[in-house]
């Protein structure tokens, strides 16, 4: 009884094999088309990878430190102005 049921399932599986193959091919074709329209570095998998830290020259580092001082100074002024105007 069980073996005949197994045989029937195997038969059904064999019958579905070409359809599955066709589905897989269709899916792969669709995915290939999707890939064709995107540049490799546009994929989420690629953009998820962080870019390396910039190697800055001494001048650039000094400039960024000056920018930090500017931010602290003007930031304090802006916050004071904003709060006192409320």
């Amino acid at each position: 009884m069980i073996s005949s049921r197994h045989a029937a399932l195997a038969e059904e599986d064999r019958a579905l094999e070409p359809i599955r193959e066709q589905d897989l091919q269709t899916q792969e074709r669709a995915e290939d088309e999707l890939i064709m329209h995107l540049e490799r570095d546009q994929f989420v998998a690629e953009t998820s990878r962080p870019v390396p830290r910039a190697a800055l020259s001494a001048y650039a580092r000094a400039g960024l430190w000056a920018l930090r001082l500017f931010v602290m100074l003007v930031g304090a002024m802006a916050i004071y102005t904003f709060v006192s105007q409320l």
Partner: peptide
Amino acid sequence: TVSRGLLGAPPLTEEDAARSADRS
């Protein structure tokens, strides 16, 4: 993700698929 990831190509997300449709 869909099956491409298993075949070596970047795995495709729904975001990729939507963007790719616009790019097509």
